[in-house]
Design a protein around this nucleic acid. Structure first.
Lengths: 205, 205
DNA sequence: GGGAATATTCCC
DNA sequence: GGGAATATTCCC
């Protein structure tokens, strides 16, 4: 769980600033959502196993199947997510546009979710639940802009943030000094108290 | 939790028709949010403990204090929530309108969050994030203010400095927490010492 | 402290 | 399957 979380956090942390890396890739490559990475990784892990399959890619690697929802929920989900509910997992699949392929088995499919194509996950987007105030014809416009809004802070913002951080540092340092001073007083108090205690006992004896 | 949502919906749907129960006027009583119930219960649980306090009501029961953020995050949070991040907990407190009362200790206060008043939690509401009429990317446009930049660090340097400052901030905060913990231990030590001292002197007399 | 994105839950 | 509320994360 810890390992896992760390990896997740690394992903999130680095992801935002990765924009410069990808070259002439396919459309709108961005850092894949954590949910997609986890789901993909959980399938990779499954590949390595010898035991009875809980979840796996289908034969062609074009979809994946949850063979045992019960075990999947109880054993697999909590190692990747903060819950063990199959329905929450499915809710996420739907959010990212996966389709159930069959009424008989739990097979899910997405055009951009295929075995061996981890990098393609970046092309999968959440379905937006736009504030209904906007007419449909404005959506594409707002999406466009959201995408192109670069993560880069400009110098102005950086300097501002910088200034605030320094101020904060000063305040924290002052808090520490206060703490330390109090600590010294307490220690002095304690030691003095021990002295007088000794003396009293000595006198009484 | 099931109960909760049902009652809520009844309230919303039927308006005021829920209770032959309510007397004069209890303003908009609804079922408290899970976050509030958990936070309240976690304090009740703390009351029962004998060991060093991690978190507790203040003396008057009008606010609560996280005495040891480190232990609170590691031990308490995961038993009530799906995470162990102090900052996520604080984010929720802010969402529900709690105020930090002091820059020195982690004390939080809300008018409707008091010891012995579990039923009053129903009056606490989430702050709404009003769906603004304009998309986020237009907002900055209207707020635009041109401050002139006269510093001559380049962006690279600024970002670097920035990153380091944040790291430093974290370390300072941790130092403070440590100091605070030590302070508490010293006080406990002192008080215990005074007790035994009294006893010894008494016996000798 | 709070805005906004993503995750989880609950309900239809 | 998806709308909507709440929770968690990330960032400013």
């Amino acid at each position: 769980m810890d390992d896992h979380t760390n990896v997740l956090e690394l992903n999130l942390g680095l992801g935002s600033n990765l924009g410069g890396l990808h070259v002439g890739q396919s459309p709108r490559q961005r850092c894949p959502a954590p949910f997609l990475l986890k789901t993909y990784d959980l399938l990779e892990e499954g590949e390595a196993e010898n035991s009875t399959k809980i979840v796996s890619w289908n034969a062609e690697g074009t979809a994946f199947v949850v063979w045992s929802p019960a075990e999947f929920s109880e054993l697999t989900l909590p190692r990747y997510f903060k819950h063990n509910n199959f329905s929450s997992f499915i809710r996420q699949l739907n959010t990212y546009g996966f389709k159930k392929t069959s009424s008989k088995i739990w097979e899910f499919k997405h055009e951009k979710f295929k075995r061996g194509c981890r990098q393609m996950l970046g092309e999968i987007t959440r379905k937006k639940c736009e504030p209904s105030v906007f007419p449909a014809y404005l959506k594409s416009c707002s999406e466009e802009n959201a995408t192109s809004s670069t993560e880069d802070k400009n110098e102005q913002q950086l300097m501002e943030e910088n200034k605030n951080l320094k101020k904060e540092r000063l305040e924290l340092q002052m808090q520490i000094d206060e703490c330390k001073a109090l600590e010294i007083k307490l220690l002095a108090c304690l030691s003095q108290f021990m002295d007088t205690h000794q003396n009293k006992v000595r006198k009484l004896c």
